[in-house]
């Protein structure tokens, strides 16, 4: 009986998914393959639309992989990502432990959450330029601060310093994302069955023990999920490094996305090189995501999404 009905209505399943599928084919799948094809060709120069496959089809890939700037960009991307992910997750976990502590309630949590999350919602382009202004030479709030505190007599050219430039980008990324990570972690902890904590309390576990032996293992899937999204986001970091210093000084803050943009849309319009670099990034992202989802799946038969499902349900209550 039920089967018959579903057969009758099955066509609506296809029909209602059609807009999604068509849009995906045109605006995502076709561009992906097109990018891949361009990677094997000689397409370059402003306004170029015609192309030929190179005699050495892998030429662009070889050029990109041996390109010093690309290597630098890849290295920077990893450094900036690691540099912001580690403090971000540590800070988020610390705040989560404090805000979800059952024995010592922190007042004003709501206000703190709103303020900590705030930078995340502000346009990254604006933040990049704002920080550029904050650290500018010779007149800027940072120089003013250093002068007032007597740390420097002359204005400092902060952003000429490669390490400092990278450091500021790492700071901006951490500052923009720790609030988000914290909110996600807190919701994960709130989704844990309270009886587990009660049992731990009865058994005499102190707070540190409770956190490391109960809380952390319980939110492992959410932690891994955060890791995956952060890696993918980090590998595509564009707005901040592009508008903060445009990859400078001396390529110290160039990321792979900025590299791709610059290859294709600035200077020599090397679409083919940019496409090859995109494909390389695509492969790296795919491999990393696949490995991480593998870990997630082995870890929890219900997969990473179980936690999400539970939270969606809890929210209705």
């Amino acid at each position: 009986m039920r089967n018959k009905k579903s057969v009758k209505y099955a066509k609506y399943g296809y029909l209602f998914s059609l807009p999604f599928i068509i849009t995906f084919l045109i605006f995502s799948l076709y561009p992906i393959f097109y990018t891949l094809v361009i990677g094997f060709t000689d397409m370059k120069g402003i306004g170029a639309t015609k192309f030929h496959i190179l005699d050495d089809p892998l030429g662009n890939f070889k050029t990109v992989l041996s390109n010093r700037t690309f290597k630098m960009a890849l290295k920077n991307t990893v450094i900036i990502w690691l540099g912001n992910f580690i403090p971000q997750i540590v800070l988020a976990l610390l705040l989560t432990a404090w805000f979800t502590d059952r024995r010592c309630k922190v007042k004003g949590q709501g206000v703190f959450k709103v303020l900590f999350y705030m930078p995340n919602i502000i346009t990254a382009a604006t933040i990049a330029i704002l920080f550029g202004a904050l650290f500018a030479y010779p007149t800027s709030p940072m120089n003013d601060l250093f002068h007032s505190l007597g740390w420097a007599k002359e204005p400092i050219y902060f952003l000429q310093n490669k390490k400092l430039a990278k450091g500021v980008i790492i700071f901006i990324q951490t500052w923009m994302w720790y609030g988000y990570t914290m909110v996600v972690m807190i919701s994960g902890v709130l989704g844990i069955n309270p009886e587990i904590f009660e049992a731990a309390e009865v058994d005499g576990a102190n707070r540190t023990q409770t956190f490391f032996y109960i809380t952390l293992p319980q939110i492992k899937t959410i932690l891994l999920f955060t890791l995956v999204t952060s890696v993918v986001g980090g590998l595509n970091m564009f707005d901040i490094p592009k508008l903060f210093l445009d990859g400078g000084p001396d390529n110290a803050t160039i990321t792979t996305s900025v590299f791709i943009y610059k290859q294709a849309f600035a200077g020599s319009y090397l679409y083919n090189r940019a496409a090859a670099a995109s494909v390389i990034m695509f492969i790296i992202i795919a491999i990393i995501s696949a490995i991480m989802f593998r870990i997630l799946k082995e870890d929890d038969p219900e997969s990473a999404y179980a936690g999400k499902k539970r939270r969606v349900r809890n929210a209705e209550k």
Partner: peptide, 20 residues
Amino acid sequence: AIMMIPAQVTMIGFYQMVYK
């Protein structure tokens, strides 16, 4: 599976398609 595909890596093909 496609949830993780970021816009950046498809941009060259997308731009060329739109430009054409």
